[in-house]
Design a protein around this nucleic acid. Sequence first.
DNA 1: TATAATGATACCATAGAAGTATCATTTGTC
DNA 2: GACAAATGATACTTCTATGGTATCATTATA
Lengths: 134, 134
Amino acid sequence: MKLITRETDYALRAICFIARHKEGAVSAAELVERLKIPRPFLRKLLQTLGKRGMLCSHKGQGGGFSLAKATDKIFLIDLIRIFQGRFSLNECLFKKRACPNIKTCGLRKKIKNIENYVIRELNSISIGSLLKKG
Amino acid sequence: MKLITRETDYALRAICFIARHKEGAVSAAELVERLKIPRPFLRKLLQTLGKRGMLCSHKGQGGGFSLAKATDKIFLIDLIRIFQGRFSLNECLFKKRACPNIKTCGLRKKIKNIENYVIRELNSISIGSLLKKG
DNA sequence: TATAATGATACCATAGAAGTATCATTTGTC
DNA sequence: GACAAATGATACTTCTATGGTATCATTATA
């Protein structure tokens, strides 16, 4: 089971790279070179990050991407939500037909508790905190 | 994101039903009827549970399935492992090529901690504990 | 005005999950 | 012993999300 997908992971790496790169914007080309992410996939993903307010973009020669927020205002859970949708461990697998087994719904509560814990943890992981560790 | 797949969920329901059904074995036909699980899918899944030591099976007229263990010796994590493989939130997405960004591997540790918590919790959820609640 | 960059968008490939189909084998009952 | 009711084994199909590709339009700078 994957907590984060490859795309989220790529996005995280890209953001970390941009964060460490102090002067000016970072182009997709440079990110491809340094992070070995397939170019069209990275480009799409950067555009998404731009639209969702994580990055600023600058067209034209010398253009590229820069952070739109401080590194301690961007959290892992933001990226998960952007690329993987609302975080939930708990989606009932039986939305259509009524959940036929009342008993196992005690299970849903337990999973919900686990989910709450995981969300709290993910909420505490900022880009800033990841950069410090290295 | 799904913590448990539909198949795991079906298996859980089937086991709970069998557990509550005291006398004799429960046939696939009855489970289909009561749990509304597609018959061939359920049959396959019951066979798997048999092979993996969760259920005993009895062929022939009046045959069916019964639990191979006490309800407090079967855990949710067992079912997850049977149908979804080894539980891990932490699989490195970059096994082949070396993980190019050392910094983000601080992340791996954090995810590992979350994973440990989740596994502890899943380990504590037995079929028995689910049946009590209802 | 040429070029280096991003914006928008549509498409393709693969793998895992979910579900189906079929025939073989065993066992109880008449 | 024959038949019917059950499981055993196994191969196939379908659907969907993820991961990845391709192309053309637009913008900004030298």
